[in-house]
Amino acid sequence: MLSCKHTIDQGTDYLDKELGFWRKVEMKMHLMICVNCRRYMKQLKQTIMMLSKGQFKKPSDQQVERLKKEYQDVSTDK
């Protein structure tokens, strides 16, 4: 039986479907009986979703304006 520590250690491989057949079966069996690891896997997915949608540094208005001008200049040249 997989320990909790080994189970969560395979979290990314499990989500990305990189585990071999038996490792996957072992993992599924562990998750069936262990609420803490089930929560962990849910939390790992939530963390990934949060990172994918996060705005870590918005561009300043000046940066946006400068890039827009650059875009317009290049488009006009073509």
Binding site: P59, L67, K68
Partner: peptide
């Protein structure tokens, strides 16, 4: 040459690029 849309794209993806 859709500058308004370009501005939205900058605002949307700048953070991940940074």
């Amino acid at each position: 040459n859709d500058a308004a849309l370009f501005e939205r794209v900058v605002k949307e993806y700048h953070s991940a690029m940074f």
